Simulated scan of single mutants.
Amino acid sequence: MTPLDETLTSEVLTPEEAIQLLEERLVVRSQKRKVGEIVVRKEIETRMIEVPVRREKLIVERVEPGYERIAELDIGERYPNGTIANGHKADVSGEFHSPNVARDLLDAIARTPDHNCAEIRIEITLKDSKHQETYQAWFDRCRKS
């Protein structure tokens, strides 16, 4: 035993002695007071900027017998489904007023060795509903095969 241990053991506390436990408390008070005002608002500005836009078009023309512009296809534009031509997925579209012209175009694409078509969508707008059922039946029959 060290001399310090002997000193501690020789001092014995009597039951009447009380040891005071002390603590500190922090009381926080907060007050709200106005120091100023702000306004948050949104404005929409429209600026006119002249920017050259370059578009690529594929033009299908008949040369013989007699010149006739058959179709015009936009290439390299951004389409509503988010694809961009010349990117990973590209859409090409055009309007034709003759089923024969559309057939010739589809035939030319089908004869291309590596046509690279992922999907082909055909939409026909009819003047009236006279042939609607027949055409839809043809579409359904071809889709199944």
Rank of each mutant, 00 (worst) to 15 (best):
Glu6Thr: 03
Gln136Trp: 08
Ser10Met: 10
Asp107Gly: 12
Glu77Leu: 11
Lys57Ser: 00
Asp5Met: 07
Leu26Trp: 03
Ser98Lys: 01
Glu56Thr: 15
Glu64Tyr: 06
Ile49Leu: 08
Thr112Pro: 02
Leu13Gln: 02
Pro65Gln: 01
Glu61Met: 09
Tyr67Asp: 09
Ile38Gln: 04
Leu21Val: 10
Trp138Leu: 05
Thr83Ile: 14
Glu6His: 08
Ile84Ser: 10
Arg111Ser: 12
Ala137Ser: 14
Ile122Val: 15
Glu123Met: 02
Ile59Cys: 03
Arg55Phe: 08
Glu64Asn: 09
Cys142Tyr: 11
Val28Gln: 07
Arg121Gly: 09
Ser30Lys: 14
Tyr135Val: 15
Arg103Leu: 13
Gly36Met: 10
Val39Phe: 03
Arg33Met: 11
Trp138His: 06
Ser129Asp: 13
Ile75Pro: 06
Thr134Ile: 13
Asp140Gln: 03
Glu50Trp: 02
Arg121Thr: 13
Ala85Ser: 11
Glu43Ala: 04
Met1Phe: 08
Ala108Asp: 02
Leu73Tyr: 14
Thr14His: 14
Arg78Trp: 04
Gln136Thr: 12
Phe96Thr: 09
Pro52Ser: 00
Glu45Met: 00
Asp140Met: 06
Thr46Asp: 05
Ala71His: 03
Lys144Gly: 04
Pro3Gln: 15
Val12Met: 07
Ile109Ala: 09
Gly94Glu: 00
Leu106Trp: 07
Gln132His: 12
Leu8Cys: 05
Lys130Tyr: 08
Cys142Gln: 13
His131Gln: 11
Ala137Pro: 00
